[in-house]
């Protein structure tokens, strides 16, 4: 599924990478624990998290995920968004909570990582 479709499904606002929403997403890694994302992501997943500090983008970069969505309407500082732009990682924010996000994406056939 294209990131642009996910954006519509989850009513996201795009904070970085407006022009990179055509990326194809097959798998999702969802956690507020960065070590968990680092341990389970295999690269090119969609990362969903409630953690909005600079380490969330560093983790996204190191793990090699394709995009980051922040849940519960949590917005990162400008310097975090600028860092994501520098690393060319699309960043979106949705008002939805983690459980609902995962349910919607699961129903649409996206898979988790394990």
């Amino acid at each position: 599924m294209k990131l642009s479709e996910i954006k519509e499904l989850l009513q996201c606002e795009v904070l970085a990478g407006e022009d990179d929403l055509s990326v194809d997403i097959q798998q999702v890694v969802a956690s507020d624990g960065m070590s968990e994302i680092l341990a389970f992501a295999k690269s090119r997943e969609l990362m969903i998290t409630g953690l909005t500090n600079i380490q969330s983008i560093r983790t996204a970069d190191v793990a090699g995920v394709s995009a980051v969505i922040y849940c519960r309407g949590k917005r990162p500082d400008k310097k975090v968004i600028d860092f994501a732009k520098q690393k060319q990682i699309p960043v979106l924010v949705t008002p939805m909570v983690m459980f609902d996000i995962c349910g919607i994406l699961f129903n649409r056939g996206l898979k988790g990582v394990s």
Binding site: D32, G33, M34, S35, E36, A39, T49, L51, Q55, T59
Partner: peptide, 9 residues
Amino acid sequence: EMGFGFGMG
């Protein structure tokens, strides 16, 4: 709270 400290490192 910073996303680390779950004993997985």
